[in-house]
Design a protein around this nucleic acid. Sequence first.
DNA 1: TTGTACGCGTTATCAT
DNA 2: ATGATAACGCGTACAA
Lengths: 336, 336
Amino acid sequence: MAQTLDDLAALSGVSRATVSRVINGGPVAEGTRRRVLDILHRTGYRPNAAARTLASGRSGVVGVVMHIDPHLLFQDPYFSQLLQGMSDALSERATAMMLWLGNRSKEETLDHILWMSLLDGVIVTAYRLEDPLVDGLLTSSLPTVLVGHRRADRSASYVDVDNVDAADAITSHLVAIGRRRIGHITGLRGTVAAEDRLAGYLRAMKRAALPVDELVVDGDFNQPSGAAGALSLLDQGADAVFAGNDATAQGALEAIRGRGLRVPDDVALAGFDDLEFAARLDPPLTTVRQGVRQQGMEAARTLFQLLEEPGEGPRRVILPTELVIRQSTAGGVVGG
Amino acid sequence: MAQTLDDLAALSGVSRATVSRVINGGPVAEGTRRRVLDILHRTGYRPNAAARTLASGRSGVVGVVMHIDPHLLFQDPYFSQLLQGMSDALSERATAMMLWLGNRSKEETLDHILWMSLLDGVIVTAYRLEDPLVDGLLTSSLPTVLVGHRRADRSASYVDVDNVDAADAITSHLVAIGRRRIGHITGLRGTVAAEDRLAGYLRAMKRAALPVDELVVDGDFNQPSGAAGALSLLDQGADAVFAGNDATAQGALEAIRGRGLRVPDDVALAGFDDLEFAARLDPPLTTVRQGVRQQGMEAARTLFQLLEEPGEGPRRVILPTELVIRQSTAGGVVGG
DNA sequence: TTGTACGCGTTATCAT
DNA sequence: ATGATAACGCGTACAA
């Protein structure tokens, strides 16, 4: 049962090289090809991946690194969807996925990944402004694609959305429906998404000449921080809340309700991500749709391009976002 | 920079075999060991995983297969936690994880996994009563551990909880607080968990000599099915609902509220899983805690045992569950 | 179109 | 304790 190319060659009455060509699509006479293929199927032959990798230099395996705080990884479907998207695109090309999560330190994880020298390339989430793991991968010779990016990653390949623009758009929407005391519950400070969304919010507020003092409170992308943040903002007389993501918005919604206030009549509410539950909230949540799954797919495809055309320089993909306006910001127009 | 053992041997003034021994912990004189180690660190040498696998027959990589409907995989933190648990236990032993999700058919996935012949073993979720993917892996020569198991898997190695007993316990609890019209919203039919929990429910009801006619409705482990199921059960005059999992219970809770009924006063409610949000519901949800993360860790450890002691026969691990009683079934004692 | 032969980088066995 | 040397199974120039 321990089949090798030599065994099959003997059975087929051809050389090992010919069997190899049949498998890998080299030039083979139609007759022999069929004969060999028949034997291949009959014996259920499976090539030895290690030998193949050793000889060819390609493994058909890419690494995916999601070194995330478990509290985020558990709670937020974001990561499941990202993973699913990558898995989709990888399986289209019969490429396997090796996964690292955040259960060791970044340094240990980096060592382990580089040690696993059979990877063709790696996709890594780059959410934090400082990240030795991302730095280490970019420095290594391993072809690398980031999901998200830091300002300093201009020379790297990445897939991202324009968080600044999207946050600006949703804030401007709140302005457009007449809100003036628009608060923002940030995401986890130190992450690119949180800082950029905050920047977009500030940009829109400044353009509208609206005050932001006391109207920014720190959250952490999780539901409880949304509740706490909302209470604080209500004390500041907020008539609208832009939460750092949908989970935060959900927490805010509960807190606002707990105060006996109505959404959107008393307080308009917006989130970010458009995860599935956003549309099912009561009222349905206005938010920014970023195709998370698509980001995952795009990251994988970008990596494929990198592998196929080396020396082409870095590839940067900014995926579009979409403002999804629902009840949580509708019907509450006060001003113009 | 393309270091090989031979390069290092030349640098160290010893043979390739000695360098290999230093790396793998063979018998080497202390002096030479230090000298070689020094060179190893100085050069940042990384062994070639493919060559190593080819020569040794072991790869240090295990496969994890979670061939789940995307709608479940996305929604339910269950899978993230399971994955996290596996990743934890694997990384303890410096073992890498290759992941397959459900984006191809089970047959294609099976082929792809077996084709990836470098795996030392595989962990696969076995949730459905019929599963060609699980069957195929068990039939293959690949050491396999199931998470969950079918009745027919008695000769396989698996990690599971006793769903029947746990469902019996929670149903009995509802009986004990005096409920008589106890309804059950099942999980997705055709899955082991759903069928076993149903069996446990039926067993407890029978022992209590309570009627079950019209009191069982089919759900699918997702929130909307919980809402629909609850409405149907309320029409049957249910005074208690045991939902197939926490997500289903959450849906049921909203529906019950929507009818203007109170939990637990009018209707007691129980779930299954004890996911993080269960304790944060209003009222907090009575449920069954199954250490999902621990199941993942245990599965990985079981696989390690299999790999270390072949021929030891299958290993079966039934992890304990815990009935977690919270407000959703408290304070509503009617009878004895 | 097909076969020969070398190389991929290790591990592991057998001498020494 | 150390050094040759033979596998490990496959890809691929090169030759035929």
